[in-house]
Design a protein around this nucleic acid. Sequence first.
DNA 1: TATTGTAAGATTGGATCCAATTTACAATAT
DNA 2: ATATTGTAAATTGGATCCAATCTTACAATA
Lengths: 227, 227
Amino acid sequence: MATTNKPLLQRQTVTAMVAEYIAGLIIAGDYPGGHQIRQEAIAAELGVSRIPVREALLQLEADGLVVIRTHRGAVVAELSSDDAIDLFDARIQLEPFLAEKAIARASEDDIATVETSMRAYEVAISRGESPKELSRLNWAFHTALLEPAMRPRSMAVVRTLYSSADRYLRLQIEPAKAQAKALREHRDLFDAYRRKDGAQTAGLLRKHIADAADEIVSQLRKSEAVA
Amino acid sequence: MATTNKPLLQRQTVTAMVAEYIAGLIIAGDYPGGHQIRQEAIAAELGVSRIPVREALLQLEADGLVVIRTHRGAVVAELSSDDAIDLFDARIQLEPFLAEKAIARASEDDIATVETSMRAYEVAISRGESPKELSRLNWAFHTALLEPAMRPRSMAVVRTLYSSADRYLRLQIEPAKAQAKALREHRDLFDAYRRKDGAQTAGLLRKHIADAADEIVSQLRKSEAVA
DNA sequence: TATTGTAAGATTGGATCCAATTTACAATAT
DNA sequence: ATATTGTAAATTGGATCCAATCTTACAATA
């Protein structure tokens, strides 16, 4: 299998846990764009010192979730239709390309992994799992699709783009509708993937991302027009 | 002008200086792939504590220049033909796309900026400036081309990809030859850019990056075959 | 009333110190 | 000789403390 095999016991550093904690709050929307993140407050909340908080914030800045200004601290990155376009366009350039490369290398096991993660997403939707869990499974599906391409660099880029894109996906007005559409598209994607039809998969993936982007951008434009 | 205007007086943090220092050593090849970076050693060298060194290393990890493993410290990322392909392919997906978007928005000032940075690169080559300076000017040219697209996210990705790509460019056997070729291609790029021919510019840029990649990959493959 | 100056508090950046983990190496057993 | 175990040194991760900078409140002046 071409997927990355994680070490059995990966020592979790406090910095990593803090980063995950803050990222979760930002992606969930609990910390909206513009929110000031106070190191001391987070540190007290989690019962740690400010050092791991600062280091976590540096990582989140690299992920584009926060903006750090010298001696002024970290602020949650603002959402905007322009940013969404930037973000989703970058995904559209990278993901379909990776999907084609992945298909060219995918083993039967890799294809089985895609199917498994598709089904997991399916089940989670029918069970009405939390947005966070659905997002995790959606990402797992995309990962399974692209991982066989064996492009760790590109995957790292796609991963950071996705975590920001996730913020936008979470503010959709009709998530259930979007999820149902995503699920249908996942099925089509898997069908083309299984047949090892690279061009078809790439095209479907492009449309999958572009459609989600259109939905989000038009929604954002409306709220921006009001403000 | 659509280019990002930097603040006149940006307070430089020690962490940022350390990051720049280490990045310079890695890109120049002074720290080869696999080299262990000892926090204490860097700290002593620069007369600072280990804190800014650690934070700098975190940023370099986000840039893909080092790999950090828990309690084992930072190691300079290894170079390989596979990694080069990964890297340059990602650039090929993103940069031509951004170039087209940039042309669609470029003002006369923006075009003048491209010309200025092209000439600066030209002059620097004729003067036999240092690899570091040439690299800086080459990046300035690419930045000038793409910046008018107004895609800060994508630009941030391209910037990190470029800094890693730079490591590969620096180990070319015949840099003078590569530079001369790059210069000719820059002239062609600028010509198409000035005419606002998006498709032509994108095509030339794709080829510009792909050719450099081919050169590097074939060279790496040879040295990998030996090892 | 608006503007400028100033001082106190809040907050971040960096240094020093301590704890936890890894690595190097010697001693022992197979 | 090789493998294994145990211990000390080296190194990183995190906490606490200090310094530099920013923000805010408020008074003095135009």
